[in-house]
């Protein structure tokens, strides 16, 4: 276990440093925080609602992540393939799982940082009113978990190709599917020919359905388990893909 953590930590540190050695980190953070604020104030009607909570802020996170997380995740493996450094990395005494988890955690921590840098909006709501800060914290944690789910999807898909553009587009499409699967529009399409159990299953896969309660500040254990499972599933798929075709 100790050696697992060491190898993972080595990869994670390198990755984190790489974000800040390139414009990726700053561009991402600026765009993320600006868009998050813009959605909240313009689309969410933050002031008009007259309520002291951050629901209009969190409500748009799934849509923000839909495009921004694949943009962050697309380089994770595609870039290593393209530049050939995957051969360097995986012939060091580092296992594929250490590399996957290390890279994932680096990107996830980075997303956590971007999320934390939206704190002015939390200041604002505390200045304007008297919100339930416990709920806000819960929503932040939930949002970060959801970002992890998007990230795991993006990481896995990035391992399929050496082309970052392809990785980005595929990840957006797959993530979009995960987002939409809970909307009535999609469920109605399935309702005609699948049993109710299946339709409920599909609805249950939806990121939106699980995020809905979270964005209102309710952290349910089932939602936490759901996000953990989604992350675990996609990282496992990532592992299998790399094991089968790391050298292609």
């Amino acid at each position: 276990m100790r050696t697992f953590l060491q190898g993972m930590h080595t990869v994670m540190r390198r990755e984190l440093a790489a974000y800040f050695a390139t414009p990726v980190a700053w561009v991402f953070i600026v765009i993320f925080t600006v868009l998050a604020a813009a959605f909240t104030f313009y689309l969410g009607g933050f002031y008009q609602r007259g309520l002291a909570d951050l629901e209009p802020f969190f409500r748009f996170h799934p849509w923000l992540y839909l495009f921004l997380v694949p943009a962050l995740a697309m380089r994770l493996w595609a870039e290593e393939r393209k530049s050939g450094t995957i051969e360097l990395l995986l012939t060091l005494p580092i296992t594929i799982s250490q590399a996957i988890v290390g890279k994932f955690l680096a990107a996830w921590l980075f997303l956590g940082l971007a999320l934390a840098l939206t704190f002015p909006i939390w200041f604002t709501v505390n200045y304007l009113g008297d919100p339930d800060n416990g709920s806000i914290l819960a929503a932040y944690i939930g949002s970060w978990l959801m970002a992890g789910a998007f990230l795991a999807i993006g990481s896995c898909i990035s391992a399929l190709t050496r082309n970052q553009v392809v990785a980005f587009i595929l990840a957006v499409v797959v993530s979009f599917g995960f987002l939409l699967s809970g909307l009535p529009l999609v469920l109605d399409a399935f309702r005609g020919w699948l049993s109710q159990g299946f339709v409920d299953g599909i609805a249950n896969l939806s990121l939106i359905a699980h995020f809905d309660a979270i964005s209102r500040g309710v952290l349910d254990l089932r939602d936490l388990i759901y996000f953990a499972l989604v992350i675990g599933f996609w990282l496992l798929a990532n592992l299998i893909i790399l094991q089968l075709r790391k050298a292609d």
Binding site: R14, A17, A18, T22, S83, G84, T85, E87, L88, T91
Partner: peptide
Amino acid sequence: IGYLPEGAPLYGEM
């Protein structure tokens, strides 16, 4: 093993 892969791939931003 110490290994130099073909083309010496490296992490350019480091």
